[in-house]
Amino acid sequence: MQHQLMATMAAGLEALTARELQHLGFDTTTENGKVYFQGDDTAIATANVWLRTADRIKIVIGQFKATTFDELFEGVKALPWDQYLPLDAAFPVAGRSVRSTLHAEPDVQAITKKAIVNKLAEVYHRRGRLPETGHTYPLEVSILKDVATLTIDTTGPSLFKRGYRIAKGEAPLKENFAAALVMLTNWRPELPFLDPTCGSGTIPIEAALIGLNIAPGLQRHFAFEDFAFIDQAVLQQVKDAAMDAADFDRELDITGCDINQEMIEVARLNAKQAGLLHSITFKQVAVKDNRPTAPRGVIVANPPYGKRMGELDAARKLYREMGQVYSQLPGWSKYILTADLGFEKSYGTKATKRRKLYNGNLQTDLFQYWGKRG
């Protein structure tokens, strides 16, 4: 069966996710926070296993305009729910409404649930409530500018949950956001890679996964594994193909550093869990003492932003140290993420380019300094 599919992601990462899907062979259409594509059961498995920057893969059951609850009810009921939900399916309905006439989200959820129950009761010749004792099919009704979109989530826990992070620091980056930071650079696996403020090691680990071409979803489970309408053999086939595509023997020069030895131990623990400890070197060293000797390479840093009371001065002192050290590395490209708009003044040099990104709900900028060629 062919499906209309939708990948969701953080704002600002749409182009990266679209590029990933196109690399996997899909034609895409992009909207804010969404990339649409089409495919069969194998496409669902492939997108979930391979996408590094997305949050979820959803099946779009239908879209229609709804400005009244009657329109919502009839529109939902008209959709082919019996092709997706067996008689005993448990189907919790999440709901959200943005800039729409039907703005009461609890009512939107309740009407949607009632319409689906009515449709299935008619199809399966049942009276009263459905059992909902079987596997879970997470549904969502989303209304944006009076257009309702009904979806089934095939992912389950968000794709950023790779499964390797068993320990973390104070404000860890989500794994898919860390992967996006790496993918926004000009790094190639043959170049040295350095994260000078690595914390729990997420950025170096994601760089190693990319460098070795290891699919990020290789070790995890997905909601669609329990869906009756999906061929359960496809996930193992996709994972087997992903294992064949990985280059486990490639040698990488990836280093993660932090001034805090406890965080270095946390990073090593996570890298070991990911099976990548052999590909990453972790060292306790301060930024001001960390001077790479290779003529070229890429630095990706997510230093403290100084958002808490009294921490801004310390953060800007670190930025000054970065500027002083990295000015001596003309062949290295530097990508530094921070929410401090005064970063360039502290760093001492205007960025080649700035890119707005959202780290969770926090607006940040990726300050990019491209290395000189030759």
Rank of each mutant, 00 (worst) to 15 (best):
Q109F: 04
V147W: 04
G256V: 02
G95K: 02
P138F: 04
L235C: 14
G310P: 08
Q236C: 09
N361H: 06
E206T: 09
R316Q: 15
L173T: 05
V98I: 11
P131R: 02
A339G: 15
T151E: 03
Y36G: 02
D146P: 12
Y347E: 01
N302L: 05
V93H: 00
V300K: 03
G331A: 07
N260C: 12
D27S: 11
L181R: 03
P295L: 15
Q284R: 13
Q236F: 08
L312R: 05
A11C: 12
F37Y: 12
L79R: 08
E175K: 03
P303I: 04
G374I: 15
K350R: 12
V76T: 11
G62L: 07
D231A: 12
H3I: 03
K272G: 15
R56C: 06
T255P: 00
P295E: 08
V76N: 00
P138W: 02
R99I: 05
K168C: 10
G331Q: 06
K356L: 08
S346Q: 08
R355E: 10
I205Q: 00
K58M: 10
A171T: 14
M322C: 14
G62I: 11
D70Q: 07
D289M: 02
D247A: 07
Y358H: 13
F224K: 13
L72R: 00
L194I: 14
K353S: 12
F73T: 03
R296Y: 06
T8K: 02
D40R: 11
H103D: 09
I299G: 10
H23D: 13
V141F: 02
C198W: 04
I230H: 05
R296Q: 13
A10K: 01
I299Q: 02
A271V: 12
A228Y: 15
T338A: 10
M322E: 05
L235S: 13
A215E: 01
M243F: 10
F343W: 01
E344I: 08
L130D: 08
L150K: 01
A167M: 09
